[in-house]
Amino acid sequence: MANYGNELVGTSPAVEALRRLVERIGGSPTRTVLIYGETGVGKGLVARMIHQMSSRANRDFVDINCAALPANLMESELFGHEKGAFTGAIDRKMGLVEAADHGSVFLDEIRELDLTLQAKLLTLLDTQQFRRVGAVKPVKVDVRFIAATNKVLLSEVTSGRFREDLYYRLQVVAVNLPALRERGEDVLTLARHFIARFNKTYGRTMRGLTPETEQIFLRYAWPGNVRELENLLERIFILEDEDMILPRHLPDRILRSVSGQSDPIAAAPLMRSEDYHVATDSFQRAMIGQAMSQANGNPQEAAKALGLSRHALRHQMIKLGLLKS
């Protein structure tokens, strides 16, 4: 999670709209929320905000990384186990889902969850019940599940790596987090926020960015998003002594990236036709995936947003392997 406090920092229209959406979701009774966003945009932060704005705020918020453990250990971690359920199970263990009763569970990197566990999660979402490993009787819980992914889940469904029924069950309410490069001058607001925080942490009096550095920050694409910005500034606090952040304090990769933006076509190597088609297909998949997400899986609405007929969208999805004919 991008560690910039317990609220969204920024004044861009994208962030203002996101604040309103998070507040609306937090106050609703929905039991499932799906958060989309690139690595480092703050999906964990938004999940915690949804919890804090809900009637569950005084109960536990349990953060689970679905990629952290292999499937056999993850099942016990999620649902717990009975004594003697397997070798080494010398006592009954409460799982994280049970520990979050009347609170919220955040399932980060939901795409990485094993298909067998996806089926058990679907049953839990539908019934609000689960069985500990080795148990006979089910345990009933009242939990809100907030899942997050940096993948286009519809593509994962098509490839067989994610259950279609679970996808639609989670997709009841979808939140799309904007990338930092889409947030305009929020990058400077965030930089000032981090500088103030690191001044306290490191006992410094850093005054901020020079105008030249500000221009670089505004032009850079920030592929690692808020997390990349935060880590960069902390590195500068550790390694540099000046009271302003200068262009020479920035990594070469950032300076090269920005200097190459004046004429990216000329600077690029000659592209082969197969490269062009691969890149085009990849872009179209991403656009369709985003449109479907924003339309909560409704093909009619997604087609309208893309300026296509429903028939044309279906044809394109079949062509790109996103839908079976």
Rank of each mutant, 00 (worst) to 15 (best):
D165K: 09
V157E: 06
F145I: 15
S159E: 12
T158M: 11
A148R: 10
L170S: 08
K137R: 15
T149G: 02
E182Y: 00
V141P: 12
V175S: 09
R169K: 14
L180A: 08
P178K: 09
Y168Q: 05
L154I: 10
E182L: 04
R169T: 05
V143W: 00
G160H: 09
L180H: 03
I146W: 10
E182G: 04
G160V: 09
R144D: 14
G184V: 04
D142A: 15
A147S: 15
E164S: 09
E182R: 05
L180W: 00
E164A: 08
N176C: 08
P138C: 02
R144L: 14
N176G: 04
P138T: 11
E182P: 04
I146N: 13
L153P: 00
T149Q: 01
R163I: 02
V175W: 01
F145Y: 13
R161Q: 12
K140Q: 10
R183A: 12
A147N: 10
D165Q: 09
L153M: 15
R183Q: 09
T158G: 15
G160F: 02
T149L: 02
A148H: 12
G184C: 07
P178S: 11
V141T: 14
D165R: 06
E182M: 06
R163H: 06
R181D: 06
V173S: 07
P138E: 02
V152N: 15
Y168T: 03
L170E: 02
L180V: 05
L153D: 00
R144K: 15
V175P: 01
V157S: 11
S155I: 00
V136D: 14
G184T: 07
F145W: 11
I146L: 11
A148P: 04
G184K: 09
R144Y: 13
L180D: 03
L166S: 03
V136L: 15
A174G: 07
V157I: 10
E156S: 13
E156F: 00
L166P: 04
L170K: 05
A179N: 09
K151W: 03
K151L: 12
A147F: 02
V141K: 08
L154R: 12
F162E: 07
F162R: 06
N176V: 08
K140T: 13
R161S: 08
A148L: 10
R183Y: 06
R181M: 06
F145G: 14
G160E: 03
E164G: 05
D142M: 13
E156Q: 14
L154P: 00
R163W: 01
V152Y: 03
R163D: 07
R144P: 12
A147E: 05
Q171W: 01
R181K: 11
V143P: 00
V175A: 08
